[in-house]
Simulated assay, not measured.
Amino acid sequence: MVIVPGVGVEAVKIGNLRDEVERRLGPAVHAGNSTRAVYDSTDPMLVVTYDGDVVELVEVGYGVDDQVFLDGVQLTYRFMDEVMADLAAKGHVATASDIGFDFRAGFAIFSMASLSARDLDPNAPEDDERHVVEGVSIAPYSYFTGNDLPANGAAGER
């Protein structure tokens, strides 16, 4: 699945109405609270956060048979440091968050530590602390940071 930073994915875009999304993907399999809805009709699965009935955030997890890509870079089900190196080489600037990195272009990569290094590298030692990218969030940069783009040289940029 390919993401478009700040926009979404082919099936769900920021600003879409819930009715539009459900016409394309079917009803949500879980909509615990009315603002977040899980759609498992795609691989990888999508989690959509709504502001009222309007999409404000699209999250994509790692897939069983398919992964998430941007600019030819596989984002999910890879080591975080490798993904960061590949994205930096393509000019993507990010700030660190508590679970990953937020990119100025309008997306974030994250790890909830559900996967370990051994999931990717069976020969990794048990105490290998490398993080695996488990998902990608797509929204305007300000959604992740709570403000507009940081000034040049903001702390935590990578």
Score class of each variant (00 low, 15 high):
P5Y: 00
G6T: 00
V7W: 01
V7H: 06
V9H: 01
V12H: 03
I14G: 06
I14V: 09
G15A: 08
G15C: 07
N16F: 01
N16Y: 01
N16R: 15
E20S: 05
V21Y: 01
A31H: 12
N33Q: 11
N33A: 10
S34E: 11
V38H: 12
Y39G: 12
D40H: 13
S41I: 14
D43H: 01
P44Q: 04
L46Q: 05
L46S: 01
V47E: 06
V48R: 08
T49L: 07
Y50A: 15
E56A: 11
L57K: 09
L57M: 03
V58H: 08
E59D: 10
G61M: 13
G63P: 06
G63Q: 07
G63S: 09
G63C: 05
G63R: 02
V64Y: 09
F69A: 00
F69G: 00
L70T: 00
D71N: 09
V73K: 00
Q74L: 02
L75G: 11
L75V: 05
T76L: 08
F79Q: 03
V83C: 02
K90D: 07
H92M: 11
H92D: 12
V93K: 13
T95L: 14
A96L: 13
A96W: 10
A96Q: 13
S97E: 07
I99C: 14
F103Y: 12
F103R: 10
A105L: 11
F107V: 05
I109H: 04
F110P: 12
S111N: 08
S111E: 11
L115R: 13
D121A: 06
D121H: 08
E129A: 06
E129H: 04
G135P: 05
V136T: 03
V136F: 03
V136S: 01
S137M: 15
S137T: 12
P140F: 02
Y143N: 14
D148H: 13
D148K: 07
A151P: 14
